[in-house]
């Protein structure tokens, strides 16, 4: 026999998913707000969202130890925001149009510095990690 679903189940499901997102998003905003307040109160030179990131990491790790279930709404809302992270950079990136003159004037120093510094960061990070792993007698990872 065919199971008959109550006709409202689809809308209830949607309402549930929407509610989950709202809860998760409220959680993210609350961690950010906490971060903004703490860096201002203690006058730490760290952007508020970064402090919020640290608080939420600690929260997730502590919760993992104390509770069996994961905070689904928070994890889902985060994945949703991060899935199209690139979109969020666009409005600020368009701001380049207000700096065209500065870039025209200094393009050589900017491009040479960016290329060399990228090379330096990649090389120094990779080789110091390689040396440190060997020095600490750990197996070199694949």
């Amino acid at each position: 026999m065919k199971k008959t679903e109550p006709h409202s189940s689809r809308s209830q499901q949607l309402e549930g998913a929407g509610l989950g997102f709202l809860i998760g998003f409220a959680g993210l905003l609350a961690f950010q707000l906490l971060g903004e307040l703490v860096v201002r109160l203690l006058a730490i030179p760290v952007p508020g969202p970064v402090a919020g990131l640290l608080f939420m990491s600690v929260f997730l790790l502590v919760r993992k130890r104390t509770k069996a279930s994961e905070p689904e709404p928070l994890l889902n809302a985060s994945s949703l925001l991060l899935a199209h992270l690139s979109l969020l950079f666009v409005p600020a990136g368009v701001g380049i149009m207000t700096h065209i003159d500065r870039i025209k004037d200094q393009w050589l120093s900017i491009s040479v510095a960016l290329i060399i510094a990228s090379f330096v960061t990649l090389f120094v990070t990779a080789w110091s990690l390689k040396i440190l792993i060997r020095f600490m007698n750990k197996p070199e990872p694949e």
């Binding site: 508020g48 970064v50 640290l54 969020l88 409005p91």
Partner: peptide, 21 residues
Amino acid sequence: GAQFIHFLLGPATVALAVPLY
């Protein structure tokens, strides 16, 4: 108009806690 998208950068930074965790 774009500021509404720009605003989401804050909560998105907080959300980076998830891949880290």
